[in-house]
Amino acid sequence: MQIIKATPADLPRVMEIYQHARAFMNANGNGGQWANGYPQQSLISAGIAQGNCYVCVDDGAIIATFYYAKEQDPTYQRIENGHWLNEKPYGVLHRIAVHSSKKGIASYCLQWCFAQCGNMRIDTHQHNLPMLRVLEKNGYCHCGIIYVADGTPRLAFQKTR
């Protein structure tokens, strides 16, 4: 497997992966995380244009996608019921989605992101049990609760060297 930046030509496959992920979440008790068609194509197109949308490729096929950037996330400025591990510059991983029967893809993507900067922050919905297991398995520490743009809470995690 390899991680590469997504291109405009990858957009249809990326959107297909997100559609599959939304259906999976809905079927598994997590319909609230990516409601109302989130993430929209315009958001993903912007991420591709900025160079922050990535794909995981296996045997020539795109099997996963995510947003990664080393940036200050505005939703991470306020954290409740805890605190971040540090205030050093950090990477963020958002909108990870996998469409493959192969195991370990999400972990591979998280490990790739961590290798880029050594200080990662990520959040997920409390009902996203598969993601919570992946975060625990990869050594992410629960730091508290943040609120995304629509005001809904997310569990916040960080991992640092």
Score class of each variant (00 low, 15 high):
159 K>V: 08
88 K>N: 15
131 M>H: 01
24 F>S: 08
41 Q>A: 15
136 E>K: 04
59 D>W: 09
151 G>I: 13
7 T>I: 09
88 K>P: 15
34 W>T: 07
123 D>E: 00
29 G>Q: 10
2 Q>L: 13
157 F>Y: 15
86 N>M: 07
107 S>K: 05
137 K>I: 00
133 R>G: 05
71 E>P: 09
130 P>N: 02
68 Y>G: 11
160 T>L: 14
80 E>L: 11
101 S>C: 13
14 V>A: 06
156 A>H: 09
1 M>A: 13
134 V>H: 02
112 W>V: 01
61 A>Q: 15
103 K>C: 00
26 N>T: 04
122 I>S: 00
67 Y>A: 07
79 I>Q: 13
63 I>S: 07
147 Y>N: 12
63 I>G: 09
6 A>S: 14
45 S>W: 12
87 E>C: 08
136 E>V: 00
72 Q>H: 13
73 D>C: 11
21 A>L: 01
3 I>Y: 10
102 K>C: 00
95 R>I: 09
18 Y>A: 04
40 Q>K: 12
115 A>M: 00
103 K>I: 00
100 S>D: 03
16 E>M: 08
127 H>T: 01
2 Q>Y: 13
155 L>Y: 14
138 N>Q: 08
94 H>E: 05
86 N>Q: 11
8 P>E: 15
158 Q>G: 09
127 H>N: 08
5 K>H: 11
44 I>K: 03
127 H>D: 12
95 R>K: 11
19 Q>E: 15
94 H>Q: 07
126 Q>R: 03
27 A>T: 03
86 N>P: 10
76 Y>K: 05
153 P>V: 06
108 Y>L: 03
145 I>N: 05
59 D>Q: 15
41 Q>K: 15
19 Q>A: 13
6 A>N: 10
20 H>Q: 08
81 N>M: 09
58 D>M: 07
88 K>S: 15
35 A>P: 11
84 W>L: 05
148 V>F: 12
45 S>R: 14
112 W>Y: 12
22 R>W: 08
149 A>I: 06
79 I>E: 13
101 S>A: 15
161 R>A: 14
145 I>W: 04
94 H>C: 02
119 N>D: 12
97 A>I: 06
19 Q>S: 13
156 A>Q: 05
74 P>D: 14
91 G>I: 01
92 V>W: 13
5 K>Q: 14
39 P>M: 04
134 V>Q: 06
3 I>G: 07
105 I>N: 03
35 A>I: 06
110 L>A: 06
105 I>V: 11
14 V>G: 04
132 L>Q: 11
15 M>V: 02
103 K>T: 01
71 E>D: 14
36 N>L: 00
31 G>T: 09
60 G>A: 05
31 G>K: 07
48 I>H: 06
117 C>G: 04
77 Q>M: 14
21 A>D: 04
2 Q>S: 14
71 E>N: 12
52 N>Y: 13
121 R>F: 01
137 K>V: 00
52 N>P: 06
2 Q>A: 08
94 H>K: 03
130 P>E: 03
71 E>H: 13
41 Q>C: 12
158 Q>N: 09
127 H>M: 00
122 I>G: 02
91 G>R: 01
55 V>N: 10
141 C>E: 01
54 Y>E: 03
90 Y>A: 07
152 T>I: 02
141 C>Y: 02
30 N>D: 15
128 N>E: 01
103 K>N: 02
150 D>F: 04
83 H>G: 15
84 W>S: 11
121 R>N: 04
62 I>F: 06
63 I>N: 06
8 P>F: 12
109 C>S: 06
29 G>M: 08
